[in-house]
Protein backbone atom coordinates (compact mmCIF):
# COMPACT_ATOMS: atom_id res chain seq x y z
CA UNK A 1 0.00 0.00 0.00
CA UNK A 2 2.89 2.32 0.78
CA UNK A 3 2.87 5.82 2.16
CA UNK A 4 0.29 8.37 1.07
CA UNK A 5 1.65 11.93 1.13
CA UNK A 6 0.19 15.33 0.32
CA UNK A 7 2.67 18.16 -0.35
CA UNK A 8 1.43 21.73 -0.20
CA UNK A 9 3.11 23.89 -2.78
CA UNK A 10 2.69 27.54 -3.57
CA UNK A 11 2.98 28.97 -7.07
CA UNK A 12 4.40 32.47 -6.86
CA UNK A 13 5.61 35.26 -9.14
CA UNK A 14 9.27 34.66 -10.05
CA UNK A 15 11.17 36.06 -7.04
CA UNK A 16 14.12 37.12 -9.21
CA UNK A 17 11.86 39.79 -10.71
CA UNK A 18 11.12 42.66 -8.34
CA UNK A 19 7.62 42.19 -6.90
CA UNK A 20 4.80 44.67 -7.16
CA UNK A 21 1.24 45.07 -6.02
CA UNK A 22 -1.73 46.07 -8.15
CA UNK A 23 -4.13 48.87 -7.30
CA UNK A 24 -6.10 46.53 -5.03
CA UNK A 25 -2.89 45.71 -3.13
CA UNK A 26 -2.65 42.22 -4.57
CA UNK A 27 0.60 40.64 -5.69
CA UNK A 28 1.05 41.20 -9.38
CA UNK A 29 0.84 37.74 -10.97
CA UNK A 30 0.97 38.77 -14.62
CA UNK A 31 4.61 37.73 -15.13
CA UNK A 32 6.28 34.35 -14.91
CA UNK A 33 4.96 32.05 -12.17
CA UNK A 34 7.19 29.45 -10.52
CA UNK A 35 7.01 26.81 -7.84
CA UNK A 36 8.08 28.51 -4.61
CA UNK A 37 11.68 27.48 -3.99
CA UNK A 38 10.77 26.94 -0.33
CA UNK A 39 8.41 24.14 -1.42
CA UNK A 40 10.92 22.26 -3.60
CA UNK A 41 12.29 20.87 -0.35
CA UNK A 42 8.92 19.46 0.67
CA UNK A 43 8.60 17.71 -2.70
CA UNK A 44 12.12 16.29 -2.36
CA UNK A 45 11.46 14.97 1.14
CA UNK A 46 8.22 13.34 -0.02
CA UNK A 47 10.05 11.65 -2.89
CA UNK A 48 12.76 10.31 -0.61
CA UNK A 49 10.19 9.04 1.92
CA UNK A 50 8.39 7.13 -0.83
CA UNK A 51 11.71 5.77 -2.05
CA UNK A 52 12.62 4.47 1.39
CA UNK A 53 9.10 3.08 1.99
CA UNK A 54 9.36 1.23 -1.32
CA UNK A 55 6.01 2.45 -2.55
CA UNK A 56 3.61 5.30 -2.05
CA UNK A 57 1.77 8.16 -3.62
CA UNK A 58 2.48 11.88 -3.66
CA UNK A 59 -0.22 14.41 -4.41
CA UNK A 60 0.78 18.05 -4.64
CA UNK A 61 -1.86 20.60 -3.70
CA UNK A 62 -1.76 24.25 -4.64
CA UNK A 63 -4.21 27.09 -4.27
CA UNK A 64 -4.15 29.97 -6.77
CA UNK A 65 -6.59 32.64 -7.88
CA UNK A 66 -5.98 32.11 -11.59
CA UNK A 67 -5.83 28.45 -12.65
CA UNK A 68 -2.04 28.46 -12.79
CA UNK A 69 -0.41 25.01 -13.11
CA UNK A 70 3.19 25.76 -14.19
CA UNK A 71 4.53 25.33 -10.67
CA UNK A 72 2.78 22.05 -9.94
CA UNK A 73 4.12 20.68 -13.26
CA UNK A 74 7.61 21.24 -11.86
CA UNK A 75 6.69 19.09 -8.85
CA UNK A 76 5.23 16.41 -11.13
CA UNK A 77 8.37 16.49 -13.26
CA UNK A 78 10.44 15.93 -10.12
CA UNK A 79 8.41 12.78 -9.53
CA UNK A 80 5.15 13.59 -7.70
CA UNK A 81 2.19 11.53 -8.98
CA UNK A 82 -0.80 13.86 -9.14
CA UNK A 83 -1.80 17.45 -8.53
CA UNK A 84 -4.84 19.23 -7.26
CA UNK A 85 -5.04 22.93 -8.04
CA UNK A 86 -7.71 24.89 -6.27
CA UNK A 87 -8.46 27.89 -8.35
CA UNK A 88 -11.14 30.42 -7.62
CA UNK A 89 -11.11 34.16 -8.21
CA UNK A 90 -12.97 34.51 -4.90
CA UNK A 91 -9.71 33.52 -3.22
CA UNK A 92 -7.76 36.55 -4.45
CA UNK A 93 -7.65 38.22 -1.06
CA UNK A 94 -7.43 35.06 0.96
CA UNK A 95 -5.68 35.24 4.31
CA UNK A 96 -3.70 32.48 5.99
CA UNK A 97 -6.55 30.78 7.86
CA UNK A 98 -8.81 30.84 4.80
CA UNK A 99 -5.97 29.33 2.73
CA UNK A 100 -5.46 26.64 5.35
CA UNK A 101 -9.19 25.80 5.31
CA UNK A 102 -9.28 25.52 1.52
CA UNK A 103 -6.10 23.40 1.37
CA UNK A 104 -7.53 21.23 4.12
CA UNK A 105 -10.73 20.65 2.15
CA UNK A 106 -8.58 19.49 -0.77
CA UNK A 107 -6.65 17.12 1.51
CA UNK A 108 -10.01 15.67 2.58
CA UNK A 109 -10.61 14.47 -0.96
CA UNK A 110 -7.51 12.24 -0.79
CA UNK A 111 -8.91 9.70 1.66
CA UNK A 112 -6.50 8.19 4.19
CA UNK A 113 -3.46 10.37 4.15
CA UNK A 114 -0.36 9.54 6.23
CA UNK A 115 1.62 12.72 6.00
CA UNK A 116 1.14 16.31 4.90
CA UNK A 117 4.33 18.22 4.05
CA UNK A 118 4.66 21.98 3.63
CA UNK A 119 7.39 24.59 3.64
CA UNK A 120 7.99 26.54 6.83
CA UNK A 121 7.08 29.77 5.12
CA UNK A 122 6.44 30.91 1.61
CA UNK A 123 8.74 33.34 -0.19
CA UNK A 124 6.09 35.96 -0.93
CA UNK A 125 3.50 35.71 1.84
CA UNK A 126 5.64 34.31 4.60
CA UNK A 127 3.04 34.08 7.31
CA UNK A 128 4.49 30.73 8.35
CA UNK A 129 1.26 29.71 10.05
CA UNK A 130 -0.40 27.46 7.48
CA UNK A 131 1.18 24.12 8.49
CA UNK A 132 0.14 24.45 12.15
CA UNK A 133 -3.30 25.71 11.13
CA UNK A 134 -3.80 22.60 9.02
CA UNK A 135 -2.67 20.44 11.94
CA UNK A 136 -5.23 22.22 14.09
CA UNK A 137 -8.03 21.86 11.54
CA UNK A 138 -7.37 18.12 11.19
CA UNK A 139 -6.61 17.66 14.88
CA UNK A 140 -3.30 15.96 14.14
CA UNK A 141 0.26 16.80 15.22
CA UNK A 142 1.93 19.69 13.48
CA UNK A 143 5.70 19.34 13.58
CA UNK A 144 7.14 22.62 12.38
CA UNK A 145 10.64 23.62 11.23
CA UNK A 146 11.91 20.12 10.55
CA UNK A 147 15.47 19.75 9.33
CA UNK A 148 15.09 16.01 8.75
CA UNK A 149 12.17 13.60 8.56
CA UNK A 150 12.03 9.83 9.08
CA UNK A 151 8.99 7.61 8.95
CA UNK A 152 8.87 4.17 10.59
CA UNK A 153 5.56 2.34 10.34
CA UNK A 154 2.97 4.69 11.76
CA UNK A 155 5.45 6.88 13.59
CA UNK A 156 7.28 9.96 12.39
CA UNK A 157 10.50 11.27 13.85
CA UNK A 158 11.94 14.65 13.00
CA UNK A 159 14.86 16.83 13.95
CA UNK A 160 13.77 20.37 14.48
CA UNK A 161 15.46 23.71 14.92
CA UNK A 162 15.04 25.19 18.37
CA UNK A 163 16.17 28.46 19.89
CA UNK A 164 19.06 26.71 21.55
CA UNK A 165 19.98 23.98 19.08
CA UNK A 166 18.20 20.95 17.68
CA UNK A 167 15.35 18.91 19.18
CA UNK A 168 14.38 15.42 18.12
CA UNK A 169 10.64 14.77 18.22
CA UNK A 170 8.36 11.89 17.51
CA UNK A 171 4.63 11.72 16.87
CA UNK A 172 2.19 9.28 15.43
CA UNK A 173 0.89 9.48 11.89
CA UNK A 174 -1.04 11.09 10.36
CA UNK A 175 0.83 14.34 10.95
CA UNK A 176 1.74 17.62 9.29
CA UNK A 177 5.40 18.51 8.99
CA UNK A 178 6.91 21.76 7.74
CA UNK A 179 10.43 21.53 6.39
CA UNK A 180 13.09 24.24 6.24
CA UNK A 181 14.98 25.07 3.10
CA UNK A 182 18.37 23.54 2.75
CA UNK A 183 17.57 20.28 4.52
CA UNK A 184 18.07 18.32 1.33
CA UNK A 185 19.14 19.23 -2.15
CA UNK A 186 16.01 19.18 -4.33
CA UNK A 187 16.51 17.12 -7.48
CA UNK A 188 16.24 18.75 -10.89
CA UNK A 189 13.54 17.36 -13.14
CA UNK A 190 15.21 15.38 -15.94
CA UNK A 191 13.93 15.10 -19.50
CA UNK A 192 12.07 11.88 -18.77
CA UNK A 193 10.43 13.47 -15.74
CA UNK A 194 9.35 16.52 -17.72
CA UNK A 195 7.83 14.34 -20.43
CA UNK A 196 6.11 12.09 -17.88
CA UNK A 197 4.67 15.12 -16.09
CA UNK A 198 2.68 16.06 -19.18
CA UNK A 199 0.44 13.04 -18.80
CA UNK A 200 0.10 13.06 -15.02
CA UNK A 201 -3.33 14.03 -13.69
CA UNK A 202 -3.84 17.65 -12.66
CA UNK A 203 -7.35 18.36 -11.44
CA UNK A 204 -8.42 21.97 -11.16
CA UNK A 205 -11.14 22.53 -8.61
CA UNK A 206 -13.25 25.48 -7.56
CA UNK A 207 -14.45 26.26 -4.05
CA UNK A 208 -17.84 24.77 -4.80
CA UNK A 209 -16.22 21.60 -6.20
CA UNK A 210 -14.66 21.20 -2.77
CA UNK A 211 -17.88 22.08 -0.99
CA UNK A 212 -16.29 25.04 0.77
CA UNK A 213 -18.69 27.79 1.77
CA UNK A 214 -17.09 31.14 0.92
CA UNK A 215 -18.74 32.92 3.87
CA UNK A 216 -17.09 30.50 6.32
CA UNK A 217 -13.67 31.72 5.16
CA UNK A 218 -14.33 35.17 6.62
CA UNK A 219 -12.02 36.82 4.11
CA UNK A 220 -13.60 40.27 4.44
CA UNK A 221 -12.56 40.68 8.07
CA UNK A 222 -9.21 41.98 6.88
CA UNK A 223 -8.06 44.49 4.35
CA UNK A 224 -5.00 46.42 3.32
CA UNK A 225 -5.49 50.13 3.91
CA UNK A 226 -2.22 51.62 2.69
CA UNK A 227 1.18 50.91 1.22
CA UNK A 228 3.96 53.48 1.36
CA UNK A 229 7.66 53.59 0.67
CA UNK A 230 9.69 52.73 3.74
CA UNK A 231 12.06 55.39 4.98
CA UNK A 232 15.17 54.62 2.98
CA UNK A 233 18.61 54.25 4.38
CA UNK A 234 21.05 56.42 2.51
CA UNK A 235 24.11 54.70 1.19
CA UNK A 236 27.12 56.32 2.83
CA UNK A 237 30.82 56.49 2.12
CA UNK A 238 32.48 54.18 -0.42
CA UNK A 239 36.05 53.01 -0.14
CA UNK A 240 37.52 51.40 -3.25
CA UNK A 241 41.18 51.30 -2.22
CA UNK A 242 41.84 48.11 -0.22
CA UNK A 243 45.07 49.45 1.22
CA UNK A 244 43.22 51.99 3.37
CA UNK A 245 40.15 49.82 4.07
CA UNK A 246 41.20 48.42 7.46
CA UNK A 247 42.13 51.89 8.76
CA UNK A 248 38.84 53.34 7.54
CA UNK A 249 36.88 50.62 9.31
CA UNK A 250 38.73 51.24 12.57
CA UNK A 251 38.21 54.98 12.22
CA UNK A 252 34.53 54.39 11.60
CA UNK A 253 34.16 52.05 14.59
CA UNK A 254 35.89 54.61 16.80
CA UNK A 255 33.52 57.26 15.51
CA UNK A 256 30.47 55.26 16.58
CA UNK A 257 31.92 54.79 20.05
CA UNK A 258 31.95 50.99 20.03
CA UNK A 259 35.74 50.89 19.92
Amino acid sequence: MGINIAVLVKQIPDPSVEGSLDSSFRFNRSGKIVLDEADLYGVEIALSLVESAGEGKITVISMVPDGETTGVRTALAMGADEAIVISDSALENSHALATAKVLNAAIDTLGDIDLIISGTESSDGYTGTIPAQIGGLRNISALTFATSVEVNGDEIQIRRQSNEGIDTLKASLPAVVSVTAGVVEPRYPNFKGIMAAKSKPVSVKSLSDLGVDFESLNIDSQSVISIDDAPNRQAGVRIEDPSIAADKIIEYLQGTGVL
Partner: peptide
Protein backbone atom coordinates in the same frame (compact mmCIF):
# COMPACT_ATOMS: atom_id res chain seq x y z
CA UNK B 1 7.66 35.73 15.37
CA UNK B 2 9.56 32.80 16.84
CA UNK B 3 9.11 29.03 16.50
CA UNK B 4 6.87 29.00 19.53
CA UNK B 5 4.99 32.22 18.82
CA UNK B 6 4.07 31.19 15.27
CA UNK B 7 2.82 27.79 16.38
CA UNK B 8 0.76 29.16 19.26
CA UNK B 9 -0.92 31.86 17.19
CA UNK B 10 -1.54 29.46 14.29
CA UNK B 11 -3.27 26.94 16.55
CA UNK B 12 -5.15 29.68 18.35
CA UNK B 13 -6.44 31.01 15.05
CA UNK B 14 -8.08 27.64 14.45
CA UNK B 15 -9.52 27.42 17.98
CA UNK B 16 -10.90 30.95 17.77
CA UNK B 17 -11.71 30.81 14.05
CA UNK B 18 -9.99 34.15 13.48
CA UNK B 19 -7.18 34.83 11.07
CA UNK B 20 -3.80 35.82 12.39
CA UNK B 21 -1.84 38.77 11.05
CA UNK B 22 1.80 37.71 10.74
CA UNK B 23 5.05 39.66 10.63
Amino acid sequence: ASYLGRDVLAHLSVFADRNVLAN
